[in-house]
Design a protein around this nucleic acid. Structure first.
Lengths: 157, 157
DNA sequence: TTTATTTAAGTGTATATACATATATTAATT
DNA sequence: AATTAATATATGTATATACACTTAAATAAA
């Protein structure tokens, strides 16, 4: 049991922020890194990377439907052109199976195997447990956080 | 000019969240990815990656002091064991110079060159401009966001 | 129907990340 | 002083990211 680095100022050894918005953007980047790092430790026990886990969850969301690469890509948290290679690695581990699409010869469709379902269920339980231990936040606060994050992104460019 | 994807539900094509906290964690990951993607487009014009820019900013924070690798590492937003290689690339571009430490032969110390200072100043101006255009948020809201993010991380594990 | 355009997937490359390990140097211990 | 432990950096490998490009197939246009 150790004390987490709480304050951004400590975490990045700086307190020179242009303004609150500048600090908020660094805070979001740092918090995201922190979340991913914690989660990755758990996922590693199941031989999964963060992105592989993300793909498995997406497939579970539509199971037993088969999804093509672009349907997976557009659901990824971090959009990536790398989905074919992530699927390759999951196929090697026999967590998903891939086939040619019957309707469109350009597409390949992917679906979870029984092993994939099992690994996903077990790893998700561990991840959820970690989150419950790690993050002590009232529902109301989380709601407010969601509002502010949408607010931050919600604008025309 | 295009409309950004505002809602998380649209962005990751899902509305199955365990609870508000679960949604908030995905929202943080997505927002961080979104921020990095936007910033990278600007930094690319200066031939910089996000992480290279981070190192330059850290060096600027202590300029003209020379920093060793571990002093840079502990200030990075995303902690990484890769700092030596990031410095290597900045040396090749002549944006920083590196020397052996006079006090500790294990250490190498790095400092910005005039070119590095110039590139950093120009790129920072572009990044700040982007942020101003992109993020319309009241100071008070940003403050609140910072409080909530600290609250999220602020716990023992 | 033939040609052109768009779309889906995959490939190649440079950089970054996570993690294990190696090497040299410093500090601590005996 | 010699040995051991700790520290700072660097290296190696697998995976991921960003982006440019290729290929094949589907769709639209001529």
């Amino acid at each position: 049991m150790y004390i987490c680095i709480v304050k951004l100022e400590q975490a990045i050894q700086s307190n020179k922020f242009k303004n609150e918005m500048h600090k908020a953007s660094l805070n979001i980047l740092y918090t995201a890194w922190w979340l991913k790092t914690q989660m990755s430790k758990v996922l590693k026990e199941f031989g999964l990377t963060h992105e592989q886990y993300n793909v498995l969850r997406i497939l579970k969301g539509k199971y037993p439907e088969q999804l093509c690469v672009k349907d997976i890509s557009c659901r990824m948290i971090e959009k990536s052109s790398n989905v074919p290679r992530i699927i390759d690695r999951l196929v090697i581990k026999k967590l998903v199976k891939r086939a040619d699409s019957p309707t469109d010869k350009r597409e390949t469709v992917t679906t979870l195997t029984q092993a994939g379902l099992a690994v996903l269920a077990a790893s998700t339980e561990s991840v959820n447990q970690l989150m419950d231990e790690m993050v002590k936040m009232e529902n109301k606060e989380a709601e407010q956080l969601n509002v502010l994050l949408e607010r931050l992104r919600g604008t025309e460019v």
